[in-house]
Design a protein around this nucleic acid. Structure first.
Lengths: 328, 328
DNA sequence: ATGAAAGCGCTAACAT
DNA sequence: ATGTTAGCGCTTTCAT
């Protein structure tokens, strides 16, 4: 004790106004000298705030988890946590059964001030559960539910830009490899592709649309399937699938970009080192993670209403795989 | 209330023996019906156990964090946490300054029952700090400190196997791209390489040893450097660096495995889809994460002494890049 | 501006 | 085998 009551120490730590500056300074000195840190459990119990948020990654994302997308996202969220002196807890579901534990183990124990949920499918039961529990939460990406706060990239605009770019380069048979159709990012990127063609008086040919699931293997399979219809360009809805597509193209002896131009989506850390370096739509993954946290914090502190709906811009990053570099 | 005191409820929840079976059943029924979950903060405060462990990833690993190695590891740790009803908190350091917060923010607040630390450098100050704080912790990998519990792959044996394999295939000028020399995995893999050559009466040529830092870019640079000395094989100390090495080889117009055989280390999820598919040393990354957690749990429950030192076996996975497949 | 005291929801030691 | 009670270390009224 530094000559004051524990109540005063508490006021100092929590920056309450009613403390004489000189007392405050003295207490702070003692804190620094002794290396005192308040016990987190006691604060949580007394104050009803844990300063812990959860990052929930559903089972559907399990196979995607080694994709560099998630590390980037985690970097963003942890960085924001760091800045605001929050702790991040990770909930990674390995099987569908695990998700049943979400409500009991995670939500009802009141350890979390809020939750960030990522990579949901359309109408994800996880989201319904969260909604029912009235815990503050924000989605990264959308699940199609109205009145849910989210941070998302402008998937449709990004896909539109990518496809327009290929049209502008004079490509005639522009195919696409989509994401999963039970995922709104997958759907929106396909919409962007369709709209870009439509706005230039072309109709999307169904044979030039192949579905993937955001994995590299699915990109490979989808590209092989498209080959039969001789595309001269392909917009791939994720960079990871683009890796697979490039492999399929190489195996078939086709040159990129001369025979087939390729544009991806994501701009992952290694996309610039693909062979050839990948032209792609950059989405600010790390920033999305940071903004998701900050939005969540705002909700925790100022209430759930109205739902925050944040859409982040994307940009076209031109490298070699689209053939534009060769022209200029 | 189900007709009993809170103490009895507590006994039921914590599986204390002294409860009549019929009372226990009744209480459990009520718990199930009401969906009651004990408040985690109160339990922690009263019981001195939080059932939360931390996973600490130092700043030195920041640039490596998008490597699929970390997701695998995280999958292992979260899976084990799931099974034992623990929660995982992630501490990812973005800058050296952040690490200063480890002790104050993380260790002294007593939120964590224990900590798993990964990817340390030799003599990492982080480890010294943990040691000083007497919190239970285990390393994934080693930092060279004696009397510290760790789980590690048998890096030296793995590298020895890889190099021996290349020798057996008749390669004469076997180079290596190493990991960083301030990292014990890097050092041990180099030792394995040297020993394999020595045991077959060869001397490692210093010109055929190029240093990398486990990033793809460093693998590319190191391979370019080695090219001047005309290796006919190269053991690359990580699959991610092998991607870079393969790129350098392709750019130089060399064929893999005909001109240069390549063997990697890790067996990351995508290593089988490289061009050509990569022969590599598989280390059980996910399992290392699980075992690290279980070892930590053992330490938390049964004390720090003696330090657990666990070394996991590796295995050679033969694919196309080493040229063995072509021979058989 | 500060201190005293109640209480957050549990666990554990002590009675019975 | 079960209930009673005293904390765990804070925050937050309520006095002063």
């Amino acid at each position: 004790m530094a000559g004051v009551s524990s109540a005063t120490v508490s006021r100092v730590i929590n920056n309450h106004p009613n403390v004489r500056p000189e007392v405050r300074a003295r207490v702070q000195r003692i804190i620094a000298e002794t290396g005192y840190q308040p016990n987190a459990a006691a604060r949580t119990l007394a104050g009803q705030r844990s300063r812990i948020v959860g990052l929930v990654i559903p089972q559907t994302a399990h196979i995607l988890f080694t994709d560099p997308y998630f590390p980037r996202l985690i970097q963003g969220v942890t960085h924001a946590c760091q800045v605001h002196d929050f702790t991040l807890s990770l909930f990674l579901f390995h099987a569908v059964e695990d998700e049943a534990k979400l409500s009991t183990r995670i939500l009802k124990r009141q350890i979390l001030d809020g939750v960030i949920v990522t990579a949901t499918q359309i109408g994800d039961p996880l989201v319904r559960e969260m909604l029912a529990s009235d815990i503050p939460f924000v989605l990264i990406g959308q699940d199609g539910t109205e009145a849910v706060s989210f941070v998302d990239a402008d998937n449709e605009a990004g896909a539109y830009t990518a496809t327009s770019h290929l049209i502008r380069l004079g490509r005639k048979r522009i195919a696409t490899i989509t994401g999963p159709m039970n995922n709104l990012a997958g759907v929106n990127r396909l919409n962007g592709y369709r709209n870009a063609l439509r706005d230039r008086g072309r109709r999307a040919e169904e044979r030039l649309i192949a579905h993937g699931d955001f994995t590299e293997a699915s990109g490979y399979a989808a590209m092989q399937q498209l080959l039969a219809h001789h595309p001269d360009a392909v917009f791939v809805a994720s960079d990871t699938m683009a890796v697979g597509a490039l492999r399929a193209l190489h195996s078939a002896g086709l040159r990129v970009p001369q025979d087939v131009a390729v544009v991806g989506f994501d701009d992952l850390p290694h996309s610039g080192t693909f062979n050839p370096p990948l032209t792609t739509i950059r989405q600010p993954i790390k920033r999305a993670g940071m903004i998701a946290f900050e939005t969540l914090l705002d909700i925790v502190e100022h209430g759930l209403e109205p739902p925050r709906r944040i859409i982040l811009p994307t940009e076209l990053v031109i490298r070699q795989s689209c053939g534009a570099a060769a022209l200029s």
